[in-house]
Design a protein around this nucleic acid. Sequence first.
RNA 1: GGCCCGUUCGUCUAGGGGUUAGGACGCAAGGUUUUCAUCCUUGUAACAGGGGUUCGAAUCCCCUACGGGCUACCA
Length: 508
Amino acid sequence: MSKVRVRFAPSPTGPLHMGGVRTALYNYLFAKKHGGDFLLRIEDTDQNRYVPGAEQYIMESLQWCGIHWDEGPGTENAFGPYRQSERQGLYRQYVMQLIESGRAYYAFDTPEELEAMRKRIEAEKSGNPQYDSRSRLSMKNSLTLSGEEVEQRLASGENYVIRIKIPENEEIVLEDLIRGKVTVHSSQLDDKVLFKSDGMPTYHLANVVDDYLMQISHVIRGEEWLPSAPLHVLLYQSLGWEDSMPQFAHLPLLLKPDGNGKLSKRDGDRLGFPVFPLQWKDPKSGETSSGYREAGYFPEAFVNLLALLGWNPGTDQEIFSLKELVEAFSLERVGKSGSKFDPEKAKWFNHQYLQSQPLQTITERMQVIANQKGIHTNPDKLPKIAALMRERANFVHEIMEQSAFFFEPPSQYDEAFAKKRWKEDTPGILMSLAELLESAEPFTSENIHALIQKFMEDNGIGAGKLMPGLRLALVGSGMGPDLSAIMEILGRGESLERIKRAAQNLKV
RNA sequence: GGCCCGUUCGUCUAGGGGUUAGGACGCAAGGUUUUCAUCCUUGUAACAGGGGUUCGAAUCCCCUACGGGCUACCA
């Protein structure tokens, strides 16, 4: 087998959504698994839909995910350039080749005429309302016009497109790596435009030409391309490239969590989860869409959860590093049916990574959040807080939210909890405990814990009587981790101060 | 409408002729804990329907239903 070369070929028409990232990921995994190349190619043949910043966004997204391309914009070599707009001059010779061999033809129809044709066929119910072997002879093209007139129209600079001439009665068979044999009859295909009147190729032509020129071995893309895959096969055949035609693999779609249909931007807004890897601000509308990065996901978690949406290793393993994914990945284990995205499970993945991430990574992120929120922190405390708090959180920002009491004494006490647990004798008990804690040396969790145990024993006080009040004093609510650990982090001064303050101020 | 693709717990999925249909998320209960979480244990819950083929079908075939994709001088 020749070298594996795959490409991810997004169109810079907006932010890349997570389905696109998954397609890129599968391409990457497949390439790396087989020691091949992963290329990034920008399909910007539609100038009308170009969105500034989109290309940059795509690249930044892939980089954030750790999906690195071997070739792409910026890595110029023999196969470049990697933006189709920069390859414009390349395509013309191939359409001309098609025209000369009679596999394509010029067409001069106006949008109005095309519309009229569709309407007519629809009204007659005489077939598919499309430009095909049945209707093309009633249109204005080089099949119906005299050679002279075609020449004349071309010479006068009239707008024209070049269409593929779909053969009339042919079974087109394509062997899809995921779906098996897919057969389509040529009568179902229409004479797709290959070359637009603006001098740009359409996707169909450009992707076939570029895949050929870039020696792509496997085309791994979304299922939405399956219907046009036979057209691409025809193009390879017509161009005489049948022998180097890549193998196809059409991936199932990512579906919205509720109801049906493919995942869209709207769903994220509606259900409160990101559908984009990175936050995106639409340059036209100014509208902002949230991203996984900004929502606090680790890129490793994002990649992990994406990988398992449509692929599985056949084992019970669910946590995979990128490296492990490369090792385990195969197209044979990609499913055929669409996957609904489950935001809850996404959080679970991040929880897993939060537990296994180096403490330093977490504290760095905590520091960033602290700076943003204007929270003053003692950098020495952060690793301790992280270690103590992370198991209860899914995200670093949740650690910060749940750790607020470390940075600021309670400004108020949870009323319901106080009502239940703050008794008349609580202040007195706490004051005695505070006195005892003065002697804890050093002021560590272990020592504090031991002293508290001793205190309870000596005074015949149960944990249920002491702890809730103590917690209220230190935290302000009935939640949080072990109190000895909290006090160690708070330090002796702050801990005792909080205890005394509550004892003095909190009334039954 | 036409064409193509698909259908196992609510969700992601394993399983590809003989399984008590397995795991994970979620949910529920119990346990641990000073609280809330975490964690642990247990439980809940599925082969879309109908016909075949077969001694035997979730698994193979057909039909139906349902879902999805495509149907542009967009990708």
